[in-house]
Deep mutational scan, measured.
Amino acid sequence: MIINNLKLIREKKKISQSELAALLEVSRQTINGIEKNKYNPSLQLALKIAYYLNTPLEDIFQWQ
């Protein structure tokens, strides 16, 4: 199972779901689904999230 800290990191950086979704060219619902662990992002999307949040990938997504 993958645990993610996306919501915590996104809120710490004061970025809304809508703003992050626009940067990543995905829907706000996609961001919401990832934050709620409804599904895991593709590797490409995970890397883009880490890039736009300027945060190491392993700080956002962790195996458990």
Score class of each variant (00 low, 15 high):
residue 1 M to S: 06
residue 1 M to N: 05
residue 1 M to Q: 05
residue 1 M to T: 07
residue 1 M to W: 06
residue 1 M to Y: 07
residue 1 M to D: 05
residue 1 M to I: 14
residue 2 I to M: 10
residue 2 I to Q: 08
residue 2 I to A: 10
residue 3 I to S: 09
residue 3 I to V: 14
residue 3 I to L: 15
residue 3 I to A: 08
residue 3 I to M: 14
residue 3 I to Q: 08
residue 4 N to M: 03
residue 4 N to F: 02
residue 4 N to W: 02
residue 4 N to P: 02
residue 5 N to G: 04
residue 5 N to L: 04
residue 5 N to E: 04
residue 5 N to I: 03
residue 5 N to S: 05
residue 5 N to V: 04
residue 5 N to W: 06
residue 5 N to D: 04
residue 5 N to R: 11
residue 6 L to S: 03
residue 6 L to I: 04
residue 6 L to C: 05
residue 6 L to A: 03
residue 6 L to T: 03
residue 6 L to P: 01
residue 6 L to R: 00
residue 6 L to M: 11
residue 7 K to H: 06
residue 7 K to P: 04
residue 7 K to D: 03
residue 7 K to Q: 12
residue 7 K to C: 06
residue 7 K to W: 05
residue 7 K to G: 07
residue 8 L to Q: 15
residue 8 L to S: 13
residue 8 L to W: 10
residue 8 L to K: 13
residue 8 L to E: 14
residue 8 L to P: 09
residue 8 L to D: 13
residue 9 I to M: 08
residue 9 I to C: 06
residue 9 I to L: 10
residue 9 I to T: 07
residue 10 R to T: 02
residue 10 R to N: 01
residue 10 R to K: 01
residue 11 E to A: 09
residue 11 E to P: 02
residue 11 E to M: 12
residue 11 E to K: 10
residue 11 E to C: 08
residue 11 E to D: 09
residue 12 K to H: 12
residue 12 K to I: 11
residue 12 K to T: 12
residue 13 K to H: 13
residue 13 K to W: 08
residue 13 K to N: 12
residue 13 K to Y: 09
residue 14 K to R: 14
residue 14 K to Y: 08
residue 14 K to Q: 12
residue 14 K to H: 15
residue 14 K to P: 04
residue 14 K to M: 13
residue 15 I to K: 06
residue 15 I to D: 00
residue 15 I to R: 04
residue 15 I to H: 04
residue 16 S to T: 15
residue 17 Q to K: 09
residue 17 Q to H: 04
residue 17 Q to L: 12
residue 17 Q to V: 14
residue 17 Q to F: 03
residue 17 Q to T: 09
residue 18 S to V: 13
residue 18 S to F: 13
residue 18 S to K: 14
residue 18 S to R: 12
residue 18 S to C: 08
residue 19 E to M: 12
residue 19 E to A: 13
residue 19 E to P: 02
residue 19 E to T: 12
residue 19 E to C: 07
residue 19 E to S: 10
residue 20 L to M: 07
residue 20 L to G: 00
residue 20 L to W: 01
residue 20 L to Q: 00
residue 20 L to N: 00
residue 21 A to F: 01
residue 21 A to P: 00
residue 22 A to Q: 12
residue 22 A to S: 12
residue 22 A to G: 11
residue 22 A to N: 11
residue 23 L to E: 09
residue 23 L to D: 08
residue 24 L to D: 00
residue 24 L to T: 14
residue 24 L to Q: 00
residue 24 L to E: 00
residue 24 L to F: 03
residue 24 L to W: 01
residue 25 E to R: 15
residue 25 E to Y: 10
residue 26 V to W: 02
residue 26 V to G: 02
residue 27 S to Q: 07
residue 27 S to I: 03
residue 27 S to K: 08
residue 27 S to E: 09
residue 27 S to W: 03
residue 28 R to N: 12
residue 29 Q to A: 14
residue 29 Q to S: 15
residue 29 Q to D: 15
residue 29 Q to I: 11
residue 29 Q to Y: 12
residue 30 T to F: 13
residue 30 T to M: 12
residue 30 T to E: 09
residue 30 T to L: 15
residue 31 I to H: 00
residue 31 I to V: 12
residue 31 I to E: 02
residue 32 N to I: 15
residue 32 N to A: 13
residue 32 N to V: 15
residue 32 N to S: 13
residue 32 N to P: 03
residue 33 G to D: 15
residue 33 G to S: 15
residue 33 G to N: 15
residue 33 G to L: 14
residue 33 G to I: 08
residue 33 G to A: 15
residue 33 G to H: 15
residue 34 I to W: 06
residue 34 I to Q: 00
residue 34 I to Y: 04
residue 34 I to T: 02
residue 34 I to G: 00
residue 35 E to V: 02
residue 35 E to P: 01
residue 35 E to K: 00
residue 35 E to I: 02
residue 36 K to N: 15
residue 36 K to D: 14
residue 36 K to S: 15
residue 37 N to M: 06
residue 37 N to W: 12
residue 37 N to H: 10
residue 37 N to Y: 07
residue 37 N to K: 09
residue 37 N to R: 08
residue 38 K to T: 14
residue 38 K to V: 14
residue 38 K to C: 10
residue 38 K to W: 15
residue 38 K to P: 02
residue 38 K to I: 14
residue 38 K to S: 13
residue 39 Y to F: 14
residue 39 Y to D: 06
residue 39 Y to T: 11
residue 39 Y to Q: 11
residue 39 Y to W: 09
residue 40 N to C: 10
residue 40 N to T: 14
residue 40 N to G: 15
residue 40 N to A: 15
residue 40 N to S: 15
residue 41 P to Q: 02
residue 41 P to C: 06
residue 41 P to K: 01
residue 41 P to E: 01
residue 41 P to F: 04
residue 41 P to T: 04
residue 41 P to R: 01
residue 42 S to W: 04
residue 42 S to V: 04
residue 42 S to C: 06
residue 42 S to R: 06
residue 42 S to M: 05
residue 43 L to A: 08
residue 43 L to M: 14
residue 43 L to D: 05
residue 43 L to C: 09
residue 43 L to G: 06
residue 43 L to S: 06
residue 44 Q to E: 14
residue 44 Q to G: 13
residue 44 Q to D: 11
residue 45 L to C: 05
residue 45 L to R: 02
residue 45 L to Y: 03
residue 45 L to G: 02
residue 45 L to S: 03
residue 45 L to H: 03
residue 46 A to P: 00
residue 46 A to K: 07
residue 46 A to Y: 03
residue 46 A to R: 06
residue 46 A to H: 01
residue 46 A to I: 04
residue 47 L to I: 12
residue 47 L to A: 11
residue 47 L to Y: 13
residue 47 L to N: 11
residue 47 L to G: 07
residue 48 K to D: 06
residue 48 K to V: 05
residue 48 K to M: 09
residue 48 K to T: 06
residue 48 K to H: 06
residue 49 I to G: 00
residue 49 I to D: 00
residue 49 I to P: 00
residue 49 I to T: 03
residue 49 I to R: 00
residue 50 A to Q: 04
residue 50 A to G: 05
residue 50 A to N: 01
residue 50 A to S: 10
residue 50 A to K: 03
residue 51 Y to H: 13
residue 51 Y to R: 12
residue 51 Y to D: 08
residue 52 Y to D: 02
residue 52 Y to E: 07
residue 52 Y to A: 13
residue 52 Y to R: 06
residue 53 L to T: 04
residue 53 L to R: 00
residue 53 L to H: 01
residue 53 L to E: 00
residue 53 L to A: 02
residue 54 N to M: 12
residue 54 N to V: 07
residue 54 N to C: 09
residue 54 N to T: 09
residue 55 T to K: 05
residue 55 T to E: 11
residue 55 T to V: 12
residue 55 T to M: 08
residue 55 T to C: 08
residue 55 T to G: 02
residue 56 P to H: 07
residue 56 P to T: 06
residue 56 P to L: 04
residue 56 P to D: 08
residue 56 P to A: 09
residue 56 P to G: 05
residue 57 L to E: 02
residue 57 L to Y: 05
residue 57 L to F: 06
residue 57 L to M: 10
residue 57 L to H: 04
residue 58 E to V: 09
residue 58 E to G: 13
residue 59 D to T: 08
residue 59 D to M: 13
residue 59 D to F: 10
residue 59 D to S: 10
residue 60 I to Q: 00
residue 60 I to W: 02
residue 61 F to P: 00
residue 61 F to W: 05
residue 61 F to C: 02
residue 61 F to Q: 01
residue 62 Q to K: 11
residue 62 Q to E: 10
residue 62 Q to V: 14
residue 62 Q to N: 06
residue 62 Q to G: 09
residue 62 Q to D: 06
residue 62 Q to C: 07
residue 63 W to K: 05
residue 63 W to N: 04
residue 63 W to C: 05
residue 64 Q to F: 09
residue 64 Q to I: 08
residue 64 Q to R: 07
residue 64 Q to Y: 09
residue 64 Q to G: 12
residue 64 Q to V: 11
residue 64 Q to A: 14
